[in-house]
Every structure is written in C-alpha cells, then in structure tokens.
C-alpha cells in the first residue's frame, strides 16, 4: 500500500516537474547510447533512445505526460545546441567570397525545388486518394 502510494506520488511529482522530465529524457538518451555501443548497431544513440521511448509509450508502460514538458523544453531550445557548430565558419573564411555565393545559390535554388516538389506531390496524392474528401476541413 505504501509502495503504491510512493509510486503514485512519484508519478505526480514527475508529471509536474520539468527538471525531472529533462533528467528522464537525458536518461533515455544515455540508455540509447549504451545500447548503440553494446549492440554495435550503425544507428546513433539518440535514435535508439527515441525508438525506446516510442516502444514504451506504445506498450503503455510510460505516459507521454511524464515526458512531455521535458521533451518540449529540448525541442524549444534546440537552436542553442547547434549554434556552437555554426562558428565553424571561422575556420572557413573562403565562404566570404565567390564560394559563399555559389553555396548560397545551391541552397536557394535547391530549397525552391524541394518545397515546390514536396507540396505538389502531396497535393496530387491527396487528389488521387479520393480527392476533396481529405480537404483542409477534415483536420480541424
């Protein structure tokens, strides 16, 4: 009985605490890293951690409420985590000249192509799969 009470109390604490949830996300990441090293799979630890969390969520052993606030914090602040890598341009002064313009051109033209092709393929697949039934209203 007391054990059950502690368990329920613990669950309530973790559902309301962002810090604990951040710790839980970190724990799943470390488990994923350990799993990647242990099994020698060619998949990054973060992905294995993600798969582990999805499996637990699907099996009902873990509620997304125990993870939600922590996970959303990581996603909201993700920009901070890759800003340091952006300073790599310090070692690549060559991008300040013609090379930089070329790279920018590749990105600009490529992005227009990616966006147009993706949007058109999705649009026509919807029309193909029964047309206007899957209209914007259905998702609302």
């Amino acid at each position: 009985m007391t054990f059950r009470k502690t368990l329920l109390g613990g669950r309530r604490t973790i559902r309301s605490s962002r810090i604990l949830q951040i710790g839980l996300v970190l724990a799943f990441w470390l488990a994923g890293e350990a799993l990647a090293r242990g099994t020698g799979l060619p998949v990054p630890g973060g992905i294995l951690g993600l798969a582990l969390v999805l499996t637990l969520l699907a099996s009902g052993r873990l509620s997304h409420l125990s993870l939600r606030r922590g996970a959303n914090w990581f996603l909201a602040e993700m920009l901070l985590f890759f800003i340091p890598a952006v300073l790599a341009v310090l070692d690549h002064r060559e991008f300040l000249g013609l090379l930089g313009v070329k790279v920018l051109a590749v990105i600009l033209v490529g992005t227009v192509l990616v966006m147009s092709v993706t949007a058109l393929v999705v649009e026509f697949s919807i029309r193909l799969c029964g047309g206007l039934k899957v209209d914007s209203h259905e998702l609302e």
Partner: peptide, 17 residues
C-alpha cells in the same frame, strides 16, 4: 551544448506519439 542534440533527438518521440 552540441552534445545535447542527442537528447533533443530523443525528445522528438513526444510529437511523433
């Protein structure tokens, strides 16, 4: 800080779910 992209990957499980 860059290493924290690892747990950020794990965090994507929540929106997928």
């Amino acid at each position: 800080l860059v290493a924290l992209l690892g747990p950020a990957t794990v965090a994507f499980a929540v929106p997928i779910w």
